[in-house]
């Protein structure tokens, strides 16, 4: 099949959705890593989290769990988006 010259309307929709996912997830990434563990480390140090302070836990363990969740959520969401895209494409062909 010949390569398309530009993205069609469906592909543009897919790309916009993708960008929105990425921005949302990166916002969480920045807030947790740079906010929770660094910029707000002093105030969050006063909050107890089990045997350690909340800031300490975010800095040494919590952030890593958040990173894992973000990558997982992205993979799941993009799988769904791929399916949705395939469905729309099929509709276009049939209708």
């Amino acid at each position: 099949m010949e390569q398309q010259k530009t993205l069609d309307e469906r592909q543009r929709w897919y790309w916009r959705k993708n960008i929105r996912f990425i921005l949302g997830l990166l916002a969480v990434w920045a807030i947790v890593a740079y906010g929770g563990a660094i910029l707000f480390a002093e105030p969050l140090s006063n909050i107890q989290f089990f045997g350690v302070s909340l800031a300490f836990w975010i800095a040494q363990q919590g952030s890593i769990l958040v990173f894992f969740s973000l990558i997982l959520i992205y993979a799941i969401r993009m799988d769904r988006l791929d399916k949705e895209y395939a469905r729309l494409l099929k509709n276009d062909k049939e209708g």
Partner: peptide, 15 residues
């Protein structure tokens, strides 16, 4: 505490 530079720095890049 400051050891977080390695703990976050070497995992957060995967995001």
């Amino acid at each position: 505490y400051d050891g977080t530079i390695y703990l976050m720095g070497w995992t957060g890049g995967y995001v």
